[in-house]
């Protein structure tokens, strides 16, 4: 309800509500982007782009229920497109970047279970990582996950099942 209220105010021109929305989603979005690229500064830039796009397309949303899915979909698309560029690898050996990643992880992951899942996802396929992250970290319903991945709900279920199996194998 809080997000819905913020989005309604934002649509009516209240830019402070927009600021609150950004603060609400900013860290989780940057952390989601770092599932694909290792650079926090680049992830931050992609997140900024996503919020600007949200501002530009704000009138296309009836309510705020799909905002998170929209932000994640845009961020995933941009991150995958920049994944193999030099910019994505520019901070690979940067200790500051490594410290930022840890700090970010601590801000987003609120339970040991989530931390365990994130640690176990390393080495998995990008699609599996995305599905598991959206379901277990962002706690998004399958329909919203389908919006991010541009697949239907059944396909999400199938992907989740396969991702769990891969995660299980990875843990073992």
């Amino acid at each position: 309800m809080y997000i819905e209220s913020l989005f309604e105010r934002f649509k009516n021109g209240d830019m402070y509500a927009f600021d609150d929305l950004i603060v609400e989603y900013k860290n989780n979005l940057i952390f989601f982007i770092t599932r694909f690229i290792n650079s926090v500064p680049l992830a931050e830039n992609i997140a900024k782009e996503a919020f600007v796009e949200l501002y530009r397309n704000r009138n296309k949303f009836e309510d705020g229920s799909h905002i998170k899915a929209y932000l994640c979909a845009y961020a995933r698309y941009r991150a995958l497109s920049l994944k193999d560029t030099p910019a994505a690898r520019a901070n690979d050996n940067d200790p500051i970047n490594a410290n930022d990643l840890i700090e970010l992880e601590n801000m987003v992951l609120t339970s040991d279970e989530q931390k365990f899942i994130v640690d176990s996802m390393k080495g998995l396929d990008d699609t599996y990582k995305t599905v598991l992250h959206l379901v277990y970290i962002e706690e998004m319903p399958y329909v919203e996950v389908g919006r991010v991945l541009r697949v239907d709900k059944e396909r999400v279920k199938d992907l989740v099942a396969k991702a769990k199996t891969a995660l299980k194998n990875n843990i073992q």
Binding site: M15, I22, V23, E103
Partner: peptide, 12 residues
Amino acid sequence: MENNNDFLNSVH
């Protein structure tokens, strides 16, 4: 990593 204010200013 940017703090909230820097991030917001950048977006605006």
